[in-house]
Simulated assay, not measured.
Amino acid sequence: MTELTVYIIDDDDDVRIALSRSLRRRGMTVAHFPDAQSFLDQVDADASGCLVLDYGMPDMDGLELQDYLVRQDSTLPIIFISGHGGIPESVRATKAGAIDFLEKPFDLSVLTDRIAVAWELGEKLRQQKARRLDLAEKRGRLTDREDEVLQYILRNPGRTTSKEIAAELNISPRTVEIHRGRIQLKVGVKTTIELYELFGRSP
């Protein structure tokens, strides 16, 4: 499932199936599940699309699934639907990043609007996570001393001459130049400005 998909989790068969049919009639790709575990068994936490999640389910309820996905650094946006969730539950869900907390019965047009918002947000989250992982991988190539030099450059963009860095780190300017060259080679940039642009605007 790589295309944008609406993943519906609801233990009420009638609600789940009716909602799936309605969204499919509107041209959406839908996959539905009767409980949280069957969803987790089949769908990646960074799947493309969004999750329409019932709050009140046995075993793992909606908020517990949300907590789990947050711990997994999931990029899948969540829209809660509920027949009996109250204000505390909706506040907790939205604070944890949910797009909305819709009370059943809800207007389908409201849900489709929220799905559009969720898809857009999900794409941004996936791009940001990919960038974080890429930067972490690049930074992982550095030695401890190279990373120390990099940290100084990022913290002090106005004081990045080899002499200034050497004085701060108590090493020679020539050693700084060697470290700087290795850093730039390992992360794939050619100048200090590019280095700052790469790491200084991490999401």
Rank of each mutant, 00 (worst) to 15 (best):
K95S: 02
Q66K: 03
R26E: 02
L125W: 09
D54L: 13
A118I: 08
S90F: 03
D134W: 03
E120G: 08
H32A: 05
L150M: 01
K186P: 02
R155S: 06
V70D: 00
I99W: 10
R182M: 11
R92H: 03
I165C: 12
I87M: 09
D144R: 10
G140E: 09
E146G: 03
T112G: 15
V52A: 04
L51S: 01
D10C: 06
H84W: 03
V70P: 00
L121M: 15
A31T: 15
L63P: 07
T143M: 02
P34Q: 14
I99N: 11
K138A: 02
G85I: 12
Q127W: 08
K104G: 06
A118T: 06
E148M: 08
F80K: 04
R92I: 14
E123A: 11
R21D: 07
R180A: 13
I81D: 06
L4Y: 14
K95H: 07
L102Y: 07
M60S: 02
T160C: 04
R182N: 10
F33G: 01
I183F: 15
F199Q: 11
P173Q: 02
V15S: 04
K163W: 09
V52G: 03
A136F: 10
I115C: 11
L133E: 14
T143C: 14
P58F: 06
A96P: 00
L195A: 01
M1C: 12
E177D: 13
G140H: 09
E194S: 06
L142S: 15
G49I: 14
R155E: 05
E177S: 06
I171W: 01
T5H: 01
C50T: 04
L102M: 09
K129N: 08
R182G: 10
Y7W: 04
Q66F: 00
S82K: 05
G200M: 04
L69E: 02
P58Q: 05
L4A: 15
A47Q: 01
D10F: 03
K95L: 12
Q72R: 15
V91P: 07
R25G: 07
A118R: 06
D107E: 13
T160H: 05
R114M: 12
M1I: 13
I165R: 00
I8N: 05
E120L: 15
P77W: 01
P88H: 11
I99T: 09
E89R: 15
E168K: 13
K186H: 15
R114C: 00
A116Y: 10
P77L: 12
P203A: 08
G181S: 01
T175F: 02
A47K: 01
E3S: 02
T175C: 03
E164C: 08
R21E: 07
V110Y: 15
W119V: 07
L185N: 11
L111N: 03
P77Y: 09
G181E: 11
T191M: 02
D54A: 00
E177H: 08
V189E: 09
Y68L: 08
R174H: 08
F101I: 15
K186I: 04
A36N: 04
I8H: 09
V187K: 00
Q184I: 01
P157H: 14
D73T: 00
L169C: 02
Y196T: 03
E164S: 07
P34Y: 01
P77T: 10
G49Y: 04
T5G: 09
A36F: 13
L121K: 11
Y152K: 01
R126I: 12
D13I: 10
L195V: 05
V117F: 00
T143V: 13
K124H: 04
P157Q: 15
R21C: 15
G86R: 03
R141S: 14
D11E: 10
